[in-house]
Design a protein around this nucleic acid. Structure first.
Lengths: 136, 136
DNA sequence: GTTTCTATATGTCAGCGACAACTATATGTG
DNA sequence: CACATATAGTTGTCGCTGACATATAGAAAC
């Protein structure tokens, strides 16, 4: 069993660190669930759609993330009944999951900002910008 | 020995995939090197400075990344001579490294965009926005 | 009957990010 | 002197990601 992380920093502060910081599929899955996607395969399509085709989530990874999120109490799942075709597992956000999504907003904005800063810095150096260090 | 990745997508398409997409310390290290930082310990401070204190690169990870980058031919290193204090390894960008930095600009802008899109999507759902699905 | 689509799942692998611990050199403080 | 601290580099472990493959099964299409 996992001890749930301290509130306010549920995302990216998981367990004892890890690659959680760099991940995209967890927030993408949350966004897709909020956009009323139900099961994994559908989430995958929703993620592609939401991100303008820029993220094509790996199916295996997505299912693993979903199960981890369920272990952590952010989603619940149940087998869909009375359905033709292969069985599908329907996911639902919990209250914890909603909080997690809110936390992700802050974190994603931060990531957005950092990525921009790094891109700016590299670009400025490559284009031979001297305005940040010297004033002519 | 590594086969160097196909040009034009040197970053985030490394080897056979991996967490390269989510990484921050490689572009941060490139930015720091471009900003005239020399050795690892200094790179670390430069990264913190460049990112407004938002990234405090792990020392161990940073050195490992630097050595991987050297293996891949993006930087070269040599022990600084005639120096008091502990030995330090000075890093220098190669032409390949410059190309890598240029690739990272594109990729970071993309990441910036995706992070923004996800944040917007989540935020819109959480605040009960219906403008994307319905028009009143 | 074989292919294709849907849907879930497992295995492997390199790598990242966070933690800790270790070796040294130099400097400052008691 | 001993000791702590700052600098500088290095190794180890751990959980997890992202990308690859592959396996499974039901249903529809050919």
């Amino acid at each position: 069993m996992h001890d749930n992380p301290s509130p306010g920093e549920r995302c990216c502060e998981r367990k004892q660190g890890g690659a959680g910081r760099g991940t995209l599929v967890e927030p993408a899955a949350l966004a897709a669930l909020l956009a009323s996607a139900k099961h994994g395969y559908d989430l995958r399509r929703a993620i592609t759609q939401i991100t303008d085709g820029q993220i094509e989530a790996d199916a295996g990874g997505l299912y693993r993330v979903l199960r981890r999120m369920e272990e952590d109490g952010f989603v619940t799942s149940s087998w869909a009944e009375g359905d033709s075709g292969p069985q599908r597992r329907e996911y639902e956000l919990t209250a914890e999951g909603l909080d997690l999504a809110a936390d992700w907003i802050v974190h994603l904005r931060q990531r957005q900002h950092v990525a921009g800063m790094l891109a700016d810095t590299i670009e400025a150096s490559l284009t031979g910008d001297a305005s940040s260090t010297t004033k002519p």
